[in-house]
Computed example of a mutant assay.
Amino acid sequence: MLLSQDPGISVVAEAADERQAVQRVAECRPDVVLLEAGLTELVQELDRAVPNPPAAVVYGIEAMTPERLADLVRGNVRGVVHRAAAHDDVIHAVHAVLHDGGFASPELTGCLLQAVRAGSMPLGVDHRFRELLTERENGVLSLLCQGLSNKAIAAALCVTEKTVKFHVSNVLAKSGVSTRAQLIAAMGSFTTAHGRHSLGAQSA
C-alpha cells in the first residue's frame, strides 16, 4: 500500500512465500524486489533461479552482524532499511536502487563500516584494475564510490545519463564484480586497509 501511493513506483506483483516470489519475479521481471528481513535467503535463490535478477531492498532489519550484512551486499542487495526507520525510507530506498544507487538506514551504517574495517566486505577487486580504466572511467569510478547516482554523476561531468551508464558498465566489467555495491564496498575496503589510494575525481 505504501509503495502504491508513490507515483514513481509501480507494484507489479506480490508474493506470499519464497516459492511464489521466485515465480513472480520470473514472470514479471521487476527492476527491484522488496523483501522482509526474514526472507534474505531468497536473494541467493533469485540469483540461482532468475537470469539477471532484480536488485533487492531488504527492510525491517533489527539486529544483524557485520558479516551477515556483508553477505547481503555480496549478493544483489542494494538497499537495507532498519526496522525503526520511517516508512518514507522504504520509498527512498526503492527510488535510490531504481536510479542505480544504494541506500542504507543510518542505524545500519555503523554495521557496514565495521564490515569494511574487518575485511568482511568483498575484496575481489585488485586496485590495479584502475590502470585499465580510461581517464573518464576513473572519474566515473571516483564519483560512483562517493555514492552518487548516475544522474548526479552525469550532472557533475556534464554528460548524459546514458553515457554514464555506459562508463559504469565498462568499469564493472574491468573490475570483475557485478554490482555497484560490491565495487564500492571493495574499493572502500582497499582504501581503509591501505589508506594511500585516492578516489578523488579526475578531470576528463
Rank of each mutant, 00 (worst) to 15 (best):
L2K: 11
S4Y: 04
Q5D: 14
I9Q: 15
E14T: 15
E14V: 13
A15M: 09
D17L: 11
V22N: 10
Q23K: 14
Q23W: 10
D31A: 15
V32K: 03
L34W: 01
L34D: 02
L35K: 03
L35S: 04
L35Y: 02
T40R: 01
V43H: 00
V50L: 09
P53N: 12
V58F: 01
Y59N: 05
I61A: 03
E62P: 04
A63L: 10
M64R: 11
P66M: 01
R68L: 00
R74H: 01
N76I: 13
R78W: 08
V80M: 13
H82D: 15
A85Y: 05
V90K: 02
I91K: 12
V97E: 09
G101M: 07
F103H: 09
L108K: 11
T109Y: 12
C111K: 02
Q114R: 15
R117A: 04
A118Q: 14
R128S: 15
F129G: 03
F129D: 08
E131Y: 10
L132V: 02
L133G: 12
E135A: 08
R136P: 02
R136M: 09
E137Q: 15
E137T: 09
S142N: 11
L144D: 05
L144R: 08
C145D: 14
L148Y: 13
K151R: 15
A155P: 03
A156P: 07
L157I: 12
C158G: 05
C158I: 08
T160L: 08
T160I: 06
S169F: 05
L172C: 05
A173P: 05
V177L: 15
Q182C: 07
Q182F: 01
I184A: 06
I184K: 01
F190Q: 07
H194N: 14
G195R: 04
S198D: 13
L199P: 10
L199G: 10
A201V: 15
Q202R: 11
S203H: 11
A204P: 14
